[in-house]
């Protein structure tokens, strides 16, 4: 698989300019790569460094030491940033902070206008991006009347219109109700599968990580472990020690085991249902 983002010995500290204070390390010695077409979930407790890592991926911040390379371009070199940001888009937590225009189609056009796309193509991209997130009928509407889930889908469309190869979602579902969360997850899963866009999903919801190709666990600024969802969720009690929890199906399988019921490896509720039906 093609390696598209590579972090080498990355350290990052906040507050290096505070009077006399030592910088507070947020990330320590991170070595991590992302590959084309992957769906990676990044999990970790509050303050584990997830959002800091997200900001490093398109050069919003640059490492205190070490290198971040995006498609071979170093994020610490300022002239690379324009090309890096064309390829890596970030959706943030608060939907209300990400709208720049009062009409939705203008909001989506903002990105492509900034990178100098010809007018006719902008029109096509706006239509395509809105269709991709299932918001085509809202083209002429205003963002204010939308639900949180719809606003985040507009934010994703705004990024799509730049045609990036990577989309990073930094707790983009944290402020949404369950319905809105599901809308966003459905849209990014589709973009990953159909458009082959690499997705890096930062979340506190274990259920959102179950279908990822890979999970990276962060703990106190360091990579604790990286692996498939089955590998990560077999860590069991260790997950709780680093502030996370087991998904429902894994938790129930573990409890049933105490009563002598042995089930095969299950992650999702559907898998658990199927396994239980075998024992009915």
């Amino acid at each position: 698989m093609e390696e598209i983002i590579k972090l080498t010995d990355v350290n990052f500290g906040y507050g290096s300019n505070t009077a006399g204070g030592q910088p507070i390390p947020a990330l320590k010695n991170i070595n991590l790569s992302f590959y084309k077409g992957e769906f990676v979930a990044l999990l970790g407790h509050n303050g584990s460094g997830k959002s800091t890592l997200a900001k490093l991926l398109n050069g919003l911040i640059t490492p205190t030491s070490g290198n971040v390379e995006v498609f071979g371009l170093n994020t610490s070199v300022e002239k690379n940033l324009f090309d890096i940001r064309k390829n890596v888009g970030v959706v943030f937590q608060n939907p209300d902070n990400q709208m720049v225009a009062s009409i939705i189609e203008d909001d989506i056009a903002f990105g492509p206008e900034n990178i100098g796309i010809p007018r006719q193509e902008i029109i096509e991209r706006v239509d395509w991006a809105l269709r991709s997130v299932g918001m085509a009928e809202h083209k002429k509407g205003t963002p204010h009347n939308l639900s949180g889930g719809q606003k985040q889908r507009i934010a994703i469309a705004g990024i799509l219109a730049i045609k990036p190869k990577v989309i990073v979602l930094d707790e983009a579902t944290a402020m949404l109700d369950p319905k809105g969360r599901q809308e966003v997850i459905d849209v990014i899963t589709k973009l990953n599968k159909i458009e082959n866009i690499t997705v890096i999903l930062i979340t506190h919801f274990m259920s959102e990580a179950l279908n990822a190709d890979r999970i990276v666990l962060l703990n106190d600024g360091e990579i604790y472990k990286s692996g498939t969802p089955s590998e990560i969720f077999s860590l069991d009690d260790e997950l709780e020690k680093i502030g996370l929890e087991l998904p429902l199906a894994v938790r129930l399988k573990k409890q049933l085991q105490k009563y002598g019921i042995d089930l095969p490896n299950v992650l999702t509720n559907e898998q658990l249902t199927e396994a239980l039906c075998q024992l009915l």
Binding site: R251, L252, Q255, L256, Y259, G260, I261, D262, T273, L276, C277, L279, L280
Partner: peptide, 26 residues
């Protein structure tokens, strides 16, 4: 799928105690 839950289950313990007697080997 054919499992029987006598009352609406709202937590893990209720789930486990309702399902155990219905499983082979439980």
């Amino acid at each position: 799928k054919g499992f029987i839950f006598p009352k609406t289950v709202i937590n893990d313990n209720e789930f486990i105690s309702a399902i155990l007697p219905q499983l082979k080997g439980g």
